[in-house]
Amino acid sequence: MKKTKNSIAPYEAVGVICAQSIGEPGTQMTMRTFHYAGVAEHVPTGLPRLIEIVDAKKEPKKPIIDIYLKKSYRSQAEAEKVAKELGSVFISDVASVNDDLENLAIRIKYSEKDGKVLGVTFNMLKKVIEEFSTDIRVSGSKMLLKPKPLKGKKGEKKRITAKFVRKLANKMKNAIVKGVKGIHRAVVIRDEKGEYFIRASGFNIIGASEHPAVDPSRVYTNNVKEIERIYGIEAARNAIKKEINDVMNMQRLYVDIRHITLISDAMTHSGDIKSIGRHGLSGQKTGVLGRAAFEETVKHLINASSIAEEEHLVGVTENIIVGQTVPVGTGKIKLLMKRTK
């Protein structure tokens, strides 16, 4: 009984209602952006972020990862320590790397000041640099590195060129001395419940979970694609729901969760994340006319003609185009009359 009462009537146009229910408050979204506490960078919120989610972008403009910690690490001090360990530090953060093209070498100068702040000692730096070449001459905080020659196809030694040195120097600058790859600028924040957690830019879920202090069941990122890759499509479905809902709520716009769920379901029901638009959902509509009416009209018509596609007029737009009743609401309901005599 209750199920019948609460379920929606057949042929109710849920998609249109969903679109309108999200679209209308969307027009009221302010251009004002709210900042994620602690992360200094500008994280897209509001309409730009909504578009990002719905377009199923591979990576958000500013990915963010929230890392909660195991019980014994939840004090602020402990969290700070973990944050320092997680945040990746590049060589260029603690040292200046300059190519010396005259001598075909690379000069590295360790900055003690930066190193101290970021918790990188000279020896740690040296260890990372040794991976590039073992031919290192150390004098104080300076290092002179001679690149080891590359081996060609037949095992012969290739000559070291200036171009190679320049390339290597740039590669070195971006080598990680410490921390987890893809996690930067980790800061400790207190959530509404008073628990300390780490928020960083980046989305390396596995890398973060490997840290002994991190509670792997409570690592979250706003990168939906990454969630799908690691946890699967159901998790991605929930992530899309949460992300859309958060965007709306942040602007104090409240949309019934069922509308958002519908979007999320539509995007994920096929097993992978599909965007809403030309390359995703709308591009995979069944009817030729429906697709042609949306975007790239000629492309769809020509493709359809080359395989003699039939249009069965199942969609709404298709029927409007040919001038028939729309198979929605009253348009699909038929009456059967029992003829007496």
Binding site: V316, G323, V328
Partner: peptide, 24 residues
């Protein structure tokens, strides 16, 4: 306006607006 009628499920009304009262 059309979307609103679709959302409401008023199929016959859409047909009337877009066909009968227009370019049938």
């Amino acid at each position: 306006e059309r979307d609103c009628l679709i959302g409401y499920g008023a199929s016959m009304l859409i047909k009337e607006r877009l066909l009968e009262e227009s370019d049938k």
